[in-house]
Design a binder for these strands. Structure first.
Length: 150
DNA sequence: CGCGGAATCT
DNA sequence: AGATTCCGCG
């Protein structure tokens, strides 16, 4: 139906829909995955971090630089990739990110979680997207990392 | 490198 | 809670 189509359009408008305006520019309360999205959104950082491979997959091309920029944002001058990657690893259980195994410095966003975090008002169980996803997977949304492409 | 426990910080 | 710091293991 038309409602489902509208939602799919929003889905593909990424990263605009995933952007959380309140915690964006110059905020010290910024979360790491917001920051990653922020860098990914900007052309000037394509040599440092960029979308690559599957939808939602990104590669940290310059880990030291990403860590340095993150350190500046959080006022943590001793930040490095070892520490930053530990924070990224905490996202695995939270289902925000997961690792693309075998590909160095490559991670993948779980988009359903991103939508859920940014739009808590959205009732995922009743949303047309997840009804469609249920139809495909035969299961309720919680364990699916696959983005259905229409 | 990538992982995850543990202690600690804000 | 969401990191930051440190570290031993594979």
């Amino acid at each position: 139906n038309s409602c489902a189509c509208g939602l799919v359009e929003v889905w593909f408008a990424f990263p605009d829909w995933a952007y959380k305006p309140e915690s964006s520019p110059g905020s010290r309360q910024i979360q790491l995955w917001h920051f990653i999205l922020e860098l990914l959104q900007k052309e000037e950082y394509q040599g440092v971090i960029a979308w690559q491979g599957d939808y939602g997959e990104f590669v940290i091309k310059d880990p030291d630089e990403v860590a340095r920029l993150w350190g500046i944002r959080k006022c943590k001058p001793h930040m490095n990739y070892d520490k930053l990657s530990r924070a990224l690893r905490y996202y695995y259980n939270k289902r925000i990110l997961h690792k693309t195994k075998g590909k160095r410095f490559t991670y993948k966003f779980n988009f359903s979680k991103v939508v859920l975090v940014n739009y808590p008002i959205l009732d995922m169980a009743n949303s047309p997207f997840f009804l469609a996803q249920n139809h495909f997977n035969g299961e309720i949304a919680e364990h699916s990392f696959t983005l259905i492409l229409y």
